[in-house]
Design a protein around this nucleic acid. Structure first.
Lengths: 329, 329
DNA sequence: AGGCATTTTAGAATGGTTTCTAACAATATT
DNA sequence: AATATTGTTAGAAACCATTCTAAAATGCCT
């Protein structure tokens, strides 16, 4: 490994002069600088990152981002948002827990030993104590979870409002019998979305019908199939997420009904790849995921730099209307 | 920031003793160790990663992964594969170029200044000179591109074979008139796939018809629509990727034809989210993306450690048959 | 008690850079 | 010609942990 001293010996200048020539900070004769630069290039000098970080007061920020599954579009967009906030000024270390809670906890626990200056946790399953524990050492930004510790910023989405929006939209499009294909009750977001749905339905004088199912294409397909096979018809479906919605749509088509004419369908998450590509295209509630990621990035940088105040940042979703819920007239 | 000296002053022991107590390496009385450990905990000591890395000879490996767009499932799976290879032994720094060639070049150029020990480039657009240049300083693994430099490992997919497989499959399912909805000619993979298609078609005594379009849902939709509107019918479609295939399928349906009865369709990439969720589900050529990522990770680690021989690693695709290409009898 | 072996602790060098201060040389001012 | 001014370069301290070597302290033996 070529170091400053090697260049100093080769050129005959001192180490400090070489350092300044390469960093371009101090002033010196053009000749000296050019000599040093060319020798440095010739020798293939690469600065030692660790030595550099240690010597300079402004160490490069390293941000750890822990996600349960980078192949899930939600987390991919989140990551991209964080990347955007990082820009040139900090390094993003990605840690994927492969959906293993154990590995996730391990990552959180060990992140700080890897020189990470702050941690963004893109998931809400880890328990509060762990967050409490590590936030003593390293600032933390966490999603969809409220945390009262110092040094922790929560970023949450208003799931209640998103569900409310979607359901109201179905009502406005003439639906009288709206079913909510929802998630299991353990997950906080499921509860919130179901709650938003219920509020909207009751407000409109309609009856609420919640099918607690799950989060996959198959879950949606089977649940809708079951309902339709026992003659339980409906003319609107508000679904937990886009995959469930697509499953429901498949079942509807198989029963000879049409979307949106017979049943209007709305999903959640607005996975563009998915929503814009199906026939008919799928209406969905959009979370500003990338923006949330960017906000998380900015928040952690502020926390690290010691001047942050926000403890909780709430984002509002918006409804993206496509063909699956639009009936003319 | 609490450092070893603070603990040394607090306990009255020397810095070296404190260091050894915390690392658990040298031998010392239980009492001393316990005292030091408890004071360290009380003070909230966190070792300085940079100082640690510099002092100890075994610096932690840092691998840079440059992708053009993490929200693209291909790169998300690639990333996951690399993560898997990293395990506990190295840190993965993710760099997203946001599809900007300029930014990508910049990232490649500056990666080594961030203390990255090796770089994986998940994209083939950058020019050879740049790769050449940086491979002088840092080992490189690159995808879908052959590079003759020392210090560079290429990982390539046999696109020719994938296209051949898909086309043969269509022939076996009774297609007599197969169109290839392909990509532009600048991209190496497009050329390869078109080539594989042509070989299979000619081998089967059929005529070749290549539509050079692009890579999006819309591209596929418009191209198929155009063909069908001028009465150019076909009974098989091998598409550049899954999105194009879905666009083609939409056009076919709109013209009152059925998939797969009237036209059998095969895509490329096997984006599971997409393929399994459409009606009918889409047959597609699968690239072992995650495996390729894992291989890339292992290769870069070997390169960094100085014992690598492989210069080019070739992966074979496989065909995943679903409903869109299966006709009974 | 003196000498030896063994355990425990301290001191100093090391890693590669940055940055402050001081020294030096060259030019300009009086 | 002596001093002031400016521009260049060298030297040394600092960053913080590791690790090697040497010294001090302890215990044991004769």
């Amino acid at each position: 490994m070529v170091k400053l001293r090697d260049i100093a010996e080769e050129t005959g200048y001192s180490i400090s002069t070489v350092s300044k020539a390469l960093s371009g900070k101090g002033r010196m004769s053009e000749e000296t600088r050019n000599t040093i630069l060319s020798v440095a290039k010739q020798l293939g000098y690469t600065p030692d990152f660790y030595a550099k970080s240690m010597a300079s007061k402004t160490k490069i920020l390293v941000i750890g981002l822990i996600v349960p599954d980078i192949t899930n579009p939600f987390f991919a967009y989140l990551t991209r948002g964080v990347e955007r906030a990082c820009g040139e000024s900090c390094l993003l270390v990605l840690m994927d827990s492969f959906r293993s809670l154990h590995r996730e906890e391990q990552l959180i626990r060990t992140a700080r030993f890897y020189g990470v200056n702050g941690v963004i946790v893109g998931n809400s399953r880890v328990n509060d104590e762990l967050i409490n524990e590590i936030s003593k050492y390293v600032p933390v930004v966490i999603f969809d979870k409220e945390c009262k510790c110092e040094n922790v910023v929560s970023i949450v989405m208003d799931n209640y409002y998103g569900a409310y929006l979607a359901t109201k939209h179905l009502v406005e499009n003439g639906c009288k019998n709206i079913v909510h294909f929802g998630g299991t009750q353990e997950l906080y977001v499921s509860i919130q979305r179901a709650h938003g749905y219920e509020t909207a339905v009751k407000e409109s004088g309609l009856e609420s019908h919640i099918a607690r199912i799950g989060y996959t294409f198959d879950d949606g397909y089977k649940a809708a199939k079951k309902l339709l096979s026992v003659g339980k018809t409906f003319d609107g479906a508000f679904c937990m997420n886009d995959l469930v919605a697509l499953g429901v749509m498949k079942a509807i088509k198989e029963e000879g009904l049409k979307v949106p004419e017979d049943v209007a369908v709305v999903g959640f998450d607005d996975d563009k790849q998915l929503c814009e590509v199906t026939v008919p295209s799928l209406s969905s509630v959009r979370q500003p995921v990338e923006m949330m990621g960017e906000t998380a990035g900015k928040a952690i940088i502020e926390l690290i730099n010691g001047h942050s105040n926000a403890k909780k940042i709430i984002f509002s979703p918006s409804l993206i209307v496509r063909d699956s819920s639009l009936r003319g007239g």
